[in-house]
């Protein structure tokens, strides 16, 4: 459960928001010339990153505006929120030592955790 900083309204509870999928996917302007594979990529294929991930949210029970968020999907740490149309800001965060592993403040599932150098 998140406390989300809406860029327009400030801090609110997650239950006021709806998630609206991956951010920064531009709708193609040359749709008539696109192949089926290009359409499939636009419509269906998603990064689904474990780690730093930009996504859209809608403050549905508030200002009803869409905005973007950068979140670490391995830990659920919210790194930034910013207005739609803005570029993704640079962020630093704690990532897992291995691609499918757990970060130091991850889910607490230590059975699958590979430690980083120096981590105890």
């Amino acid at each position: 459960m998140f406390i989300i900083q809406c860029p327009y309204c400030g801090e609110r509870d997650q239950s006021e928001f709806t998630h609206a999928g991956e951010a920064h996917i531009a709708r193609p302007t040359n749709s008539a010339d696109m192949t089926d594979a290009e359409w499939a990529d636009f419509l269906f294929m998603r990064k689904n990153t474990k780690g730093v991930y930009a996504e859209r949210w809608n403050h549905a029970a508030g200002c009803r505006k869409f905005f973007n968020m950068v979140r670490n999907t391995a830990t659920d740490e919210i790194l930034a929120t910013y207005a739609a149309g803005q570029p993704m800001p640079d962020v630093t965060t704690d990532l897992p030592a291995t691609p499918s592993g757990e970060a130091s403040i991850g889910s607490g599932n230590d059975a699958v955790k590979v430690m980083k150098e120096g981590e105890v």
């Binding site: 997650q14 709806t18 991956e22 474990k50 979140r71 999907t73 391995a74 659920d76 991850g106 889910s107």
Partner: peptide, 12 residues
């Protein structure tokens, strides 16, 4: 509804 790999869900 959100993408996550944290193996925990929301209270609501």
């Amino acid at each position: 509804a959100h993408v996550s790999y944290t193996q925990r869900g929301s209270m609501d």
